[in-house]
Write a protein that binds this DNA or RNA. Structure first.
Length: 103
DNA sequence: TTCGTGACTAGGT
DNA sequence: AACCTAGCCACGA
Protein backbone atom coordinates (compact mmCIF):
# COMPACT_ATOMS: atom_id res chain seq x y z
CA UNK A 1 0.00 0.00 0.00
CA UNK A 2 2.55 2.63 0.81
CA UNK A 3 0.09 5.51 1.38
CA UNK A 4 2.79 7.96 2.37
CA UNK A 5 0.62 10.77 1.07
CA UNK A 6 -2.28 9.67 3.25
CA UNK A 7 -0.13 9.56 6.38
CA UNK A 8 1.32 12.95 5.55
CA UNK A 9 -2.16 14.41 5.16
CA UNK A 10 -3.33 12.86 8.42
CA UNK A 11 -0.24 14.14 10.21
CA UNK A 12 -0.97 17.65 8.99
CA UNK A 13 -4.63 17.42 9.96
CA UNK A 14 -3.71 16.31 13.46
CA UNK A 15 -1.64 19.51 13.76
CA UNK A 16 -4.59 21.81 13.17
CA UNK A 17 -5.31 23.55 16.48
CA UNK A 18 -8.87 23.62 17.80
CA UNK A 19 -10.88 26.66 16.80
CA UNK A 20 -9.17 26.83 13.43
CA UNK A 21 -9.71 25.09 10.15
CA UNK A 22 -7.79 24.39 6.97
CA UNK A 23 -8.92 23.90 3.39
CA UNK A 24 -8.34 20.79 1.31
CA UNK A 25 -6.15 22.79 -1.01
CA UNK A 26 -4.05 24.19 1.82
CA UNK A 27 -3.39 20.69 3.12
CA UNK A 28 -2.66 19.45 -0.37
CA UNK A 29 -0.05 22.17 -0.72
CA UNK A 30 1.56 21.39 2.61
CA UNK A 31 1.63 17.74 1.58
CA UNK A 32 3.42 18.65 -1.62
CA UNK A 33 0.47 18.14 -3.97
CA UNK A 34 -0.75 21.57 -5.07
CA UNK A 35 -3.42 19.99 -7.27
CA UNK A 36 -4.33 17.14 -4.95
CA UNK A 37 -7.24 18.68 -3.06
CA UNK A 38 -9.55 15.88 -4.19
CA UNK A 39 -7.07 13.30 -2.97
CA UNK A 40 -7.07 14.93 0.45
CA UNK A 41 -10.83 14.63 0.51
CA UNK A 42 -10.60 10.97 -0.43
CA UNK A 43 -8.08 10.28 2.33
CA UNK A 44 -10.17 12.08 4.94
CA UNK A 45 -13.27 10.15 3.91
CA UNK A 46 -11.43 7.04 5.08
CA UNK A 47 -9.57 8.72 7.94
CA UNK A 48 -11.44 6.63 10.50
CA UNK A 49 -9.69 3.58 9.08
CA UNK A 50 -6.32 5.04 10.02
CA UNK A 51 -7.23 6.33 13.45
CA UNK A 52 -8.84 9.33 15.12
CA UNK A 53 -8.15 12.64 13.44
CA UNK A 54 -9.86 16.05 13.68
CA UNK A 55 -11.00 15.83 10.06
CA UNK A 56 -13.98 18.05 10.94
CA UNK A 57 -11.54 20.99 10.87
CA UNK A 58 -11.06 20.59 7.15
CA UNK A 59 -13.44 22.44 4.84
CA UNK A 60 -13.61 23.40 1.17
CA UNK A 61 -12.20 26.64 -0.20
CA UNK A 62 -15.70 28.09 0.08
CA UNK A 63 -15.84 27.19 3.72
CA UNK A 64 -18.35 24.48 2.84
CA UNK A 65 -18.53 21.47 5.09
CA UNK A 66 -18.55 17.87 3.89
CA UNK A 67 -21.78 16.75 2.16
CA UNK A 68 -23.99 14.48 4.18
CA UNK A 69 -22.05 15.07 7.39
CA UNK A 70 -24.20 17.30 9.60
CA UNK A 71 -22.14 16.53 12.68
CA UNK A 72 -19.18 18.44 11.30
CA UNK A 73 -20.98 21.77 11.70
CA UNK A 74 -21.79 20.97 15.31
CA UNK A 75 -18.22 19.98 16.07
CA UNK A 76 -16.90 23.24 14.61
CA UNK A 77 -19.35 25.36 16.58
CA UNK A 78 -18.32 23.52 19.72
CA UNK A 79 -14.77 24.70 19.07
CA UNK A 80 -15.77 28.29 18.60
CA UNK A 81 -15.65 28.32 14.83
CA UNK A 82 -18.43 30.55 13.61
CA UNK A 83 -20.67 28.68 11.22
CA UNK A 84 -23.08 30.61 9.06
CA UNK A 85 -25.72 28.72 7.22
CA UNK A 86 -28.15 29.93 4.61
CA UNK A 87 -31.73 30.71 5.61
CA UNK A 88 -32.86 27.23 4.72
CA UNK A 89 -29.99 25.27 6.14
CA UNK A 90 -28.86 24.97 2.57
CA UNK A 91 -25.16 25.48 2.21
CA UNK A 92 -23.37 25.44 5.51
CA UNK A 93 -20.21 27.48 5.74
CA UNK A 94 -17.69 28.48 8.27
CA UNK A 95 -17.95 32.11 9.17
CA UNK A 96 -15.85 34.02 6.75
CA UNK A 97 -15.40 37.49 7.91
CA UNK A 98 -11.70 37.27 8.03
CA UNK A 99 -12.16 33.69 6.90
CA UNK A 100 -9.25 31.50 6.22
CA UNK A 101 -8.32 30.62 9.66
CA UNK A 102 -5.86 27.96 8.83
CA UNK A 103 -2.99 27.39 11.12
C1' DT B 1 -7.36 1.27 -21.77
C1' DT B 2 -11.42 3.89 -21.44
C1' DC B 3 -15.14 5.54 -18.39
C1' DG B 4 -17.53 6.98 -14.33
C1' DT B 5 -17.09 8.73 -9.73
C1' DG B 6 -15.77 11.65 -5.74
C1' DA B 7 -15.41 15.03 1.71
C1' DC B 8 -12.07 19.69 -4.69
C1' DT B 9 -11.56 24.40 -7.43
C1' DA B 10 -12.13 28.21 -10.35
C1' DG B 11 -14.66 30.38 -13.75
C1' DG B 12 -18.90 31.03 -16.53
C1' DT B 13 -24.04 31.13 -17.22
C1' DA C 1 -27.55 32.47 -5.15
C1' DA C 2 -27.81 28.04 -7.80
C1' DC C 3 -26.29 25.26 -11.56
C1' DC C 4 -22.81 23.77 -15.17
C1' DT C 5 -18.24 22.86 -17.16
C1' DA C 6 -13.59 21.96 -17.37
C1' DG C 7 -9.36 20.75 -15.01
C1' DC C 8 -7.60 17.93 -11.48
C1' DC C 9 -5.84 12.94 -9.53
C1' DA C 10 -6.45 8.13 -7.86
C1' DC C 11 -9.48 3.94 -8.18
C1' DG C 12 -12.23 0.33 -9.61
C1' DA C 13 -15.32 -1.86 -13.16
Amino acid sequence: MEDSFAYLVLAIVSEIPGGKVATYQQIARLAGRERGARLVGRVLSHASLYGDYPCHRVVSSQGRTAPGWEEQRVLLEAEGVGVSQERNGRSVAVSMEGMTLLF
